[in-house]
Amino acid sequence: MHEAPVIMLGGFHLDLSAVLMLFVSMVIVFVVCRLSVANLSVENPGKFQNFMEWIVEFVQSIIGSTMDMKHGKKYLSLGLTLILFIFVSNLLGLPLGFITEAHKPEMIFGHVIEATKGLTGGEHAEILWWKSPTADISVTAGLAAVVFILMNYLGLKYNRKHYLKHYLEPFPIFLPLNIIENFSKPIALAIRLFANIFAGEVLIAVIIKMKYLGIPFLGAWQGFSIFVGGLQAYIFTILTMVYIGQTTIHEEEH
């Protein structure tokens, strides 16, 4: 089992791998977006701009399928950030992994890595540095928490009466069920994304153990993982929009 390089910093656990990978994802997404808007043109858009506009229109269609575009316009940036960030994160773990093997307590930035604490001769720990950030349940839980906070905050802000009323529907006795339902949404989001990407990386690790025999399998699985990464990013985004739509927009009775 690969361990995460966690150090104790002022009483907090700091997962260096997660921080590193989050940072890499952010930099890649930001650089791509920044490059795509570097040479914006109304008359004669370049290939990069067309690509970015295609993504924007894709996200617009996602939002448009879950809510009225009049309400959904302000969530366009959110949807774009989500889908790009999750897609890039999903793909980061595919091309390479970076693992160090420690046989004794290792120090980094003057702090000891938790997983290597108390290692004595003969024992060793494998520290995983480079992976998909979304293959870490804490990270996907963080993303889901953002969605959870957003949907409830937006529900309270734009649709307070119906948002509060829906907890008591169809009968007041359903209140606990409705609360559980509310919490199940982000948990399902987090676990779905984490499990898909983590399973993909586990299988890659298994295939690599097959040495040369595994090359065709690895190629096929990596291709499939790209598909899964895109699909999971799409699902996460569309579910976010569905949840926001559910809490913020009150459909009139027909």
């Binding site: 997962d15 989050l22 990270v139 963080g142």
Partner: peptide, 12 residues
């Protein structure tokens, strides 16, 4: 790790 959750939320 709840620290990771917070870090992710912040970075997002």
């Amino acid at each position: 790790l709840w620290e990771n959750i917070v870090i992710t939320m912040l970075s997002f």
